[in-house]
Write a protein that binds this DNA or RNA. Structure first.
Lengths: 346, 346
DNA sequence: ACATTTACCGAAAACGTTTTCGGTAAGTTT
DNA sequence: AAACTTACCGAAAACGTTTTCGGTAAATGT
């Protein structure tokens, strides 16, 4: 019942396996009649080449790996979605792994992928990763690697990113332009680059619009959770009752804030405007719906695979790897948790 | 720079590849000194066996495939999360594919997996799938397959499910027990088994509690979207202003309903109770937070892999496949969109 | 009639591993 | 001293595919 091989076909037809192989691949030095006989028999028995044997010879699996910190996450699953679909178009399958934001796991999972001889790796770094030799080693051994979203510039390889600083600038700018005078920022765990970038975007926006930067307006959410937002909102309004804008690191936190403010009878956006980050699915379902920053995960995944593919081809052709960085634009999704724009609308 | 092989080790040490192979695998007919020499050299050069070559011999890849209708979906990504983690524990990697709810894609993706000679498949059927020969064929050719969530009993293989009917019964029962007298049900697209099961659970609950079943209280959401819920809520309240409970097929629909009722100044749960299904992440972030049914995706994934593993082993040992069905229990997550239980609490 | 081209096919090696089946040399038993 | 173990190692085949390099026979050119 199991699959037929070249050898079996050759035996049935009384010809050599080389001829069968060539007939199926339409080599020019095979008689048309022979080709037809072979191809018909192959079709009849539903011949498909044995992938192991092909890989063993070609040293290619047509499988890539993708390692993300967490899979159950709208942003990352969108990226994977984009990558899988793009990969499929080019005949590649995708193994998905998670580092669970652990440096050790990241190393372990990468080793699993390398040992399986997959063709390339798409990688988003864990928050804990601050050393990069494990990745450099892999690249030096000839494995094409593309970094996306959680990246470091200390590794020389293609990268796909969004400009967090620019996006955070836009978010803060939106609050300013809609009339906010005193804006708090809920930031994330200290180390990751995204935390710093979003904070910097916030700060630069204030400076650009000649607004004072006040350190006490920075609050930290350790877990980036709904609950964190809920609790911090209470603290913020207690310490700074005159606040009129909050820029949260990420949507769930913003939604926690929103819920708390509503419970405390603080009008959103009349008294306090709220802007989130990431455009999670649920952000359009809150009341009022949450203004936020859209991070196009699907496109990031698509682009990352395309960069990977380029290097897969380079490798096959013996060319050196590229290491370009692609920036995917973000946009402000204006909903009802911020006030209407005051400047004349075009 | 690339990986060292048995042959190269054997050349360096001046012994045969067979000896090297056996030394690394601790065969008893190899001298201890030789073993040590081989193992040290292997470690020094970071030897890892070539996976293709192993697979070619053993006919095993240690890779499984998982095919879901959509990846970007909290429920499915949780399932995949559970499957990946469980698989990893047993040395398996996971290729993820999507059918995008298309019958043709399902066939195509399954073929990709089969052609790659992966060891087994975890599958959740697309909504469009009503014929199952493509799956039966795969199983008959010896591929271990496990069905989960979107299943059919017309295929003889292991299955992991939740009892939708029972869960829907509990949901409706909860509304009844908290005092609802006239309950509408928003159902999904007609064909899928889940739609029918949840509808049946609703209906049976009504009958059980001697409440009339009224056909006009059944509304259909084609897209199972937030927007559908939003719009249907308006329709429902217009046609049945005296309704006091709504059981929605799935959380986003319920949240759409919630938002609309709030906009229409209808008190939830005072005037109308709402219960959803699936316990999406966002359901605890709404105000009032949504009462819903928890479907433990992670556990489903875990269990499905365990069943698959059992058959992977059976296959290796030449035993026939099992075909047990595991039911994962659901639970009602009581939040604020339904009233407090009236009966004495135990 | 001989030389040369063309058309077609197959042997063989290679990818890297695993395992069976001997085989040799040393040591042990009668 | 002959027979027999034991300890250790290697040759070889197998998994299935791909591609190079000839090789043979027929067809064509002088």
């Amino acid at each position: 019942m199991s699959k037929i091989t070249l050898k079996e076909i050759s035996k049935i037809l009384g010809i050599s396996t080389s001829t069968v192989s060539k007939a199926l691949k339409n080599y020019s030095d095979i008689n048309v009649d022979t080709k037809i006989r072979v191809q018909e028999l192959a079709k009849k028995h539903n011949y498909t080449p044995n992938a192991f044997a092909q890989s063993l010879r070609s040293r290619e699996t047509k499988i890539i790996g993708i390692l993300v910190p967490e899979l159950v996450h709208h942003f990352f699953s969108s990226i994977i979605d984009g990558a899988i679909n793009e990969a499929e178009k080019h005949g590649y399958l995708v193994i998905v792994l998670q580092s669970h934001e652990s440096y050790e796991d990241e190393i372990k999972q990468l080793k699993l992928l390398v040992d399986k001889n997959i063709d390339g790796i798409m990688l988003s770094l864990s928050d804990k990763t601050v050393k990069y030799d494990h990745i450099r080693t892999i690249i030096n051994e000839g494995m094409p690697v593309v970094l996306f979203d959680k990246i470091t510039h200390l590794i020389d390889c293609p990268k796909v990113i969004i400009d967090d600083r620019k996006a955070a600038f836009s978010a803060t700018e939106h609050l300013i332009k809609t009339g906010c005078k005193k804006i708090a920022h809920i930031t994330g765990p200290l180390k990751p680059k995204t935390t710093i970038d979003r904070f910097m975007g916030y700060k630069i926006a204030l400076e650009t619009y000649n607004m004072p930067f006040n350190k006490t307006l920075i609050y930290t959410s350790e877990n980036l959770s709904f609950e964190d937002g809920y609790n911090l909102a209470g603290q913020i309004m207690a310490e700074h009752p005159d606040i009129d804008g909050i820029f949260a690191f990420i949507d769930p936190v913003a939604i926690g804030v929103l819920k708390r403010l509503k419970e405390d009878k603080i009008k959103v956006p009349k008294q306090v405007s709220i802007i989130g980050f990431s455009n999670w699915f649920m952000s359009r379902t809150t009341s009022p719906a949450l203004t936020t920053i859209d991070q196009p995960g699907y496109q990031i995944g698509r682009n990352a695979f395309q960069l990977l593919l380029k290097n897969l081809n380079h490798k096959r052709e013996g060319k050196p790897f590229t290491s370009e960085t692609v920036e995917i634009p973000t946009s402000v999704i204006i909903r009802q948790s911020t006030r209407a724009i005051m400047a004349p609308v075009i």
